[in-house]
C-alpha cells in the first residue's frame, strides 16, 4: 500500500525507530546539547564524550518521528570512535546528501547513513533527518545552548 514510500521508509529506519541505539542519558558526558525542531516540536538531547579530539561515546534522549529517531540513532553509532574533524566531514556530507546540494555524494563514505538519502524527495521531512546532525555540529563547536533547525 505504501510502495511510493519505500525509498523514504526503509526497513533500517523502522528498525532504528523501534529499537533506537544509544538511547540513554550519559552521566559522564562532556558535551551535551539540546536540539529542537519548532516545525514539529521534536526535541532531542545529544550527549558526547570527547577525549583528545576523539568521540569516545555518543548517546541521546528525546522523542521524534521515525526519520529523526533513526537519524540520531544511526548517527550516534557512526560517530563513535571518529575524530571531531571526521565527524564534521560527515555532517557536511550528510547535509549535502539530504538537501541534494551535491549530485556525486560518495555513498560509500557515508555508509549506512545512505538509507536517509530518500528524504531529499520530501522537502517537508528534510529537517527531521538533519536535526541530529545540526545538534552534533553545535556540540562539536561547543555551543552549549540549545539549537533549532530554523
Amino acid at each position: 500500500m505504501f510502495d511510493d514510500l519505500r525509498d523514504l521508509y526503509q526497513e533500517v529506519i523502522f528498525d532504528h525507530n523501534r529499537n533506537p541505539r544509544n538511547f540513554r542519558v550519559m552521566d559522564d558526558a562532556n558535551r551535551q546539547v539540546e536540539g529542537f525542531n519548532p516545525l514539529c516540536g521534536d526535541r532531542l538531547t545529544l550527549f558526547l564524550k570527547i577525549e583528545d579530539g576523539v568521540i569516545n561515546d555518543a548517546s541521546f534522549q528525546g522523542q521524534g518521528c521515525a526519520i529523526s529517531t533513526a537519524s540520531v540513532s544511526l548517527m550516534t553509532e557512526i560517530i563513535k570512535g571518529k575524530t571531531e574533524a571526521e565527524a564534521e566531514t560527515l555532517f557536511t556530507q550528510f547535509h549535502e546528501m539530504t538537501t541534494g546540494k551535491s549530485e556525486d555524494i560518495q555513498l560509500e563514505a557515508i555508509g549506512k547513513l545512505a538509507v536517509l538519502a530518500g528524504v531529499r524527495e520530501y522537502p517537508a521531512r528534510v529537517k527531521c533527518a538533519t536535526l541530529a546532525w545540526h545538534t552534533l555540529d553545535a556540540a562539536l563547536k561547543n555551543q552549549a545552548q540549545s539549537i533549532s533547525t530554523e
Binding site: 523514504l8 514539529c40 521534536d42 522523542q63 518521528c65 521515525a66 526519520i67 520530501y122 521531512r125 527531521c128
Partner: peptide
C-alpha cells in the same frame, strides 16, 4: 507512531 510519519504516510 509520530504524527509526522502519519502525515507523510
Amino acid at each position: 507512531i509520530h504524527p509526522h510519519d502519519i502525515g507523510t504516510m
